[in-house]
Design a protein around this nucleic acid. Structure first.
Lengths: 220, 220
DNA sequence: TAGATTGTTAATCGATTAACAATC
DNA sequence: TAGATTGTTAATCGATTAACAATC
C-alpha cells in the first residue's frame, strides 16, 4: 500500500531495544506481556510502545496484550534478522579483529565473507577461517562475491578514500568506525559508530552530574 | 546562576560533531566561520547551530560569525576535554584490547590506568605498558587509585555483576559495550555502545532503501 | 458478561526552523 | 555607514503522552 507513511528513525532505533527485551522475556519463559508491563521494565511509556508497534501493524490483542514469541519474531522480521547480509571488514587492526571475532553478528544474519588490510605482516593470516587479503584484491573479490555491507575500521586518514572505493564498487551499506562523517556521491546507507563522540558525551554527563573532575595536566 | 535551564541531551550529542568539524576547519587554516557556512558543511540548519551554541553562551559576533579556534576551545571545555578522567578497562578480550590500543582517547583526557580480566593466560601481560590484573584485585586497586570511568567489555552474562561491583566501589561512569541496559541501584552515569543495535539499524535501512536482500538459509 | 488492554485519535510537549531586531 | 550575521523570540513541526472507544 502507498498509504504507509515513513516510520521515523527514532522509532527504528528503538526496535533493537524492544527486540532485546523480548528476547529476555522469552528466556524467562514469559509468554505474554502487556504494553503496561513492558513499559515498566523498559522505563518508557506504554503509549509509546503501542504507538511504535502500530507503525508496523497490530501485533497485540485487546484484553490480552502481546504474545512475546510472536512479537519477538515480528520485530526480528522488521529488522531483517531473517535476512542474510554479506559483509566484509576493511582494516584488520584491533577494532577490525575484535568485530571479526564477535560471534553475535553472524547469528543475526551478518555473514562475514572477507577481511582486507594493507599490512603485509598480517596478510594471509586467518581470522575466523577467513584469510586476510590485500585491499588491492578488493575489486576482484567484489566481482566474484556479492557483498552488502563494508565495515570500515581503517585508520582515520584512509577512511574517505576506502569508503569511496567500496561505494564505487557497488557496496550499499557502510558501517563506519572512524570519527568523521562520510560524504559520498553514491547512493549508500551509512551507519556511524562514533566511539569518541560517545565517550565525550559520557565525560560531559559525568562532569555535569558530579561536578569536579581533575584538570588535565599540561603536557602530559 | 540558577536561571540556566538544563540543556537537552539532543544538543549534547551534537557537540562532539561540532567539535570534529571545527577541528577540521582549524586544520584547513580557516579562522572564522558563520553559522550559515557551517550549516552547509554539516547538513543542518544555521538556526540549529545558533540555538545549540546559545545554550552555553554567545560565542559569536554579529556581522562576523564565529572564531574557529575560540569556538573549538570553548566546545572542548564544555565537553570536558580539558579534564582528566581516569579509566579502567574490564574485560581484556578483543574489544577491550582494541579500546586499550586506541590512542585517541588518551588525547582527549581519558587516561587508562588499569586493565582487568579473569583469564589466567593473559593476566600479567601488558597492554600500553599496563599490566592486566585479575578482576579480584579490583577492590584493592580502587582503594589506591581514583578511577572515574570503567569500560565494560566483558562477556554478556558477566556484565550486570561486574557493573554492580564497580559501581558499588564508587565508580561514577560506565561505558557499556554489552547489548543490554544496565540497571543499578547507584548513582552512576551509563553510556551505552550497542554495536549490535547499530548494525541491526543498518540492516533495516538497507532493506528499506534497496529492497530485496537474500533470505538467510535455514540452519546455517 | 466484566475486566483488561489494545489500536487510534486527540492533546501536549519539546525540538527544530524561521524571522528579525540588535549590533559588530 | 552599509552589509553581514549573531542572539533571541516566535512559529512550526514532529514526537511523545493521554484518553478512550473498540474488542478480545
Amino acid at each position: 500500500m502507498n498509504s504507509k507513511k515513513k516510520v521515523s528513525i527514532a522509532v527504528i532505533r528503538r526496535l533493537p531495544r524492544y527486540y532485546r527485551y523480548l528476547s529476555d522475556l522469552l528466556k524467562m519463559d514469559i509468554t505474554r506481556i502487556s504494553s503496561k508491563e513492558l513499559s515498566a521494565r523498559m522505563g518508557i511509556t506504554a503509549s509509546q510502545i503501542r504507538q511504535d508497534l502500530n507503525c508496523f501493524g497490530g501485533f497485540g490483542q485487546q484484553g490480552y496484550g502481546y504474545n512475546v514469541e510472536y512479537l519477538y519474531n515480528e520485530i526480528g522480521k522488521i529488522l531483517g534478522v531473517d535476512k542474510k547480509f554479506n559483509t566484509i571488514i576493511i582494516g584488520a587492526g584491533n577494532m577490525g579483529q575484535a568485530l571479526a571475532n564477535y560471534g553475535n553478528f553472524e547469528k543475526r544474519g551478518y555473514h562475514l565473507v572477507g577481511i582486507f588490510d594493507v599490512n603485509p605482516k598480517i596478510i594471509g593470516k586467518k581470522i575466523k577461517n577467513i584469510e586476510i587479503m590485500h585491499i588491492d584484491k578488493i575489486e576482484e573479490f567484489l566481482k566474484e562475491n556479492k557483498v552488502d555491507i563494508a565495515i570500515l575500521t581503517v585508520p582515520y586518514e584512509h577512511t574517505p578514500e576506502v569508503a569511496d572505493r567500496v561505494a564505487r564498487l557497488g557496496i550499499k551499506g557502510l558501517w563506519n568506525f572512524s570519527p568523521m562523517d562520510l560524504k559520498l556521491p553514491y547512493d549508500v546507507v551509512i551507519e556511524n559508530v562514533h566511539l569518541s563522540d560517545s565517550l565525550m558525551v559520557l565525560g560531559y554527563r559525568l562532569k555535569e552530574k558530579f561536578g569536579r573532575v581533575e584538570d588535565k595536566t599540561q603536557n602530559e
